[in-house]
């Protein structure tokens, strides 16, 4: 589904990713772990298509297509979803209006007809209930005044509504207490399916107790320096990044 080869990315003239190679098949959940500043968020932004993140070398093939050549919004319509570490607050746009606009924008791009207001409402309500997102939250301005947990729950709600093929979760565990983390992880696990791939980016092993990955990649200084199964997370937790990164270097 996703094939990244020798990816080099610069941000503001500084090279952050320095030859990253990674491949994910449908149905798999991969985790990317790494210390601060290793390039984890850069990878997520490059995949989602944020401007200012320039690919200088290498390739990103998504379902046979060159992802770099696609506009940000086209990637979303084709099933790439990034649950952001810091979801933005947008005063003046209600959460419900945002969800409806985004959903129908994606549908239109795929040549599907718009869902009417009632259709969207039904869909959103059903999914919101599962994630404990209240009606009141949906009426509020997007992310404005939401707690950390509410923001992350709304990200997962969007993932559940948009039904992406490739979901990237960028530090979804940051800022969450244990109850909020469990709720979010359950939401993510419910969305695991044979057609969907997930890339879970995290600093800590904690999240991976709840969302158990098929593969773990350790990112340091812009490269994958170690790979393994889920047991790698435990080793990292016990010995620290310094140990593994040091060994690789």
């Amino acid at each position: 589904m996703l094939d990244i080869k020798n990816l080099h990315v610069t941000v503001g003239g500084k090279e952050i990713l320095k030859g990253l190679t990674l491949s994910i098949q449908p149905g798999q959940v991969h985790a990317i772990m790494g210390p601060n500043g290793s390039g984890k968020s850069t990878l997520s932004f490059v995949l989602a298509g944020r401007s200012g993140y320039d690919v200088t070398e290498g390739s990103i093939i998504y379902n046979g297509e060159d992802l770099k050549a696609m506009a940000t919004e086209d990637r979303a319509a084709k099933g790439v979803f990034l649950a952001m570490q810091y979801p933005v607050e947008i005063p003046g746009v209600t959460t419900m209006t945002f969800l409806k606009t985004a959903l129908n924008s994606q549908r239109r791009k795929r040549g599907e007809s718009d869902l009417d207001a009632i259709g969207v409402l039904k869909l959103v309500r059903a999914k919101a209930k599962e994630l404990n997102v209240s009606e009141e939250m949906l009426k509020r301005a997007l992310n404005v005044g939401f707690s950390g947990g509410e923001k992350k729950r709304l990200e997962i709600l969007q993932m559940s509504i948009f039904e992406p093929k490739l979901a990237i979760l960028d530090e979804t565990d940051s800022g969450l207490d244990i109850d909020a983390l469990r709720l979010v992880a359950e939401g993510v696990n419910a969305l695991r399916s044979p057609e969907r791939a997930m890339l879970v980016i995290t600093h800590y092993q904690r999240l991976l107790d709840y969302i158990v990955p098929d593969r773990i990649h350790v990112l340091a200084k812009g490269r994958i320096v170690a790979e393994g199964g889920k047991e790698l997370a435990l080793e990292l937790e016990a010995k620290g990044y310094e140990h593994i990164v040091g060994q690789a270097a």
Binding site: A48, T72, E73, V88, V93, T101, K109, F162
Partner: peptide, 29 residues
Amino acid sequence: DGDSLFYLRARGIPEADARALLIHAFLED
């Protein structure tokens, strides 16, 4: 705001629509 514009586009909203949405939102209060 560049962050807001990226957020909306990453959710599939075309750039022109995202800009219009943010401008309306700016005036709303």
